[in-house]
Design a protein around this nucleic acid. Sequence first.
DNA 1: ACCGGGTGAATGGTCAGACCATTTATCGTA
DNA 2: TACGATAAATGGTCTGACCATTCACCCGGT
Lengths: 247, 247
Amino acid sequence: MPPLFRAARQNRIFQDVVDQIQEAIIDGRLKVGDRLPAERELKAMLQTSRSTLREALRVLEQKGLIEIKLGMGGGAVVKAVTPDLVAESLDLLIRSQNVSLHHIAEFRERVEGDVVEIATQRMTPSGRIQLQTLLDEARQHANRGPEATSAFLTTDKNIHLCFAKLTGNPIYISVLKTIHENIRRYYDAYLVMEAREMAENFKDLEDVVAAMGKGDAQRARAIARAHVSRFNGYMKARERQENPAAG
Amino acid sequence: MPPLFRAARQNRIFQDVVDQIQEAIIDGRLKVGDRLPAERELKAMLQTSRSTLREALRVLEQKGLIEIKLGMGGGAVVKAVTPDLVAESLDLLIRSQNVSLHHIAEFRERVEGDVVEIATQRMTPSGRIQLQTLLDEARQHANRGPEATSAFLTTDKNIHLCFAKLTGNPIYISVLKTIHENIRRYYDAYLVMEAREMAENFKDLEDVVAAMGKGDAQRARAIARAHVSRFNGYMKARERQENPAAG
DNA sequence: ACCGGGTGAATGGTCAGACCATTTATCGTA
DNA sequence: TACGATAAATGGTCTGACCATTCACCCGGT
């Protein structure tokens, strides 16, 4: 077996270290949960200094590839890559005002429609049960009125994520997770739903699931898209209240 | 005016430094193009050591918030936040999740359709010119036959990215960039197009652009989707040749 | 035998100071 | 004036030390 790492050489040595470890993770020589050698060992393996090595570890940590724990028995552990970093970078884009809520909304509207369409074709018995459970949950929150807005939104999100899981396509799952993480910030900041709005939205969800149950993918798609569109409408209305000039 | 930075204190000091500088960038106290003080000055301002400061700079660089240049007159310069990091992290996610070509293809087929539909509604004069130029390029590659497969694929990619830019939605831009980067890995590995296939594909592109020119968004969408679907068909065929059992 | 606290070792986090490599400005000379 | 040598500014790397946190182990008391 070849050694896990070779000596690091390049203009920026830490970049070479990053590349080596990242490669090892992506092609599976390092698996999730594996622990990297201690810094003082690694620096010997890579024939570099500890500061250089640490800069590399910082980058890998920021990329979400490893997690570093303190103290004895701590160290760098290979992490499962999650949509978190995508969400974070999207968040940065949004906050630096290069992406607006409108952009996310436009994207989401179509993606959610697609997801529901595919999910309908791949419905499973256990999926039916999960959706029914989530739907019951949503109904209860909706009945409690505006004070339960946050709880309702959480269940709403979980229903959409359940659709995504039904597609079995990890891209849809990651993309939808990312969107919901980002969009939720706006909802929490601005959105308190009126009882009527909650009822409307709950009915949307109910209708989507019903259409999915009948295997009517196109109808499910259309309702889902309208559902998301309605949500976006609420947000636009709230935005106009905040900043009428933008309307 | 308050000092730009305060002394850094927290469990992980470098994290505090990252936060401070990031805040300064996001809320506009540091603007794009601004140059940060030299490391030896910054470390004094933040009352920290140079190694700690440098770990923070590595993180900010990785986040795409600053760019660091060597030599005299170099240093850390605030960068415009671009969708690149979103694309990169999405890429990481896809690569580490063993996402199959099938998953990418399924996603791409629908997204490309959406993109073309939106782009049609937002066509610009300069967009028309760019597309026409790219189309001419593609025609030339197609005429050269199979040996020009790679060049044709590159132009094909550029045309799709041009569609994405026309949407004006950075999310579509980063998503499409990522998709093409990932899918290209498969194409380069397997795909050599026959002359007939290249001709078919070129005609698809020509038809899409024509429909877009007439403002027929739905027709453009349908052709684009079929175009991508055809591409995916080629790949599936090639996969079967490699591994008949999977067919 | 068991429990609890103390203690030390492993490990990441920080620091200080030196030197190297790259880039640009400056100055002197042809 | 033009060009080349030189110096200064700046990031990149290295070394070695010490601090802070965590956990396993051991010892003593019950």
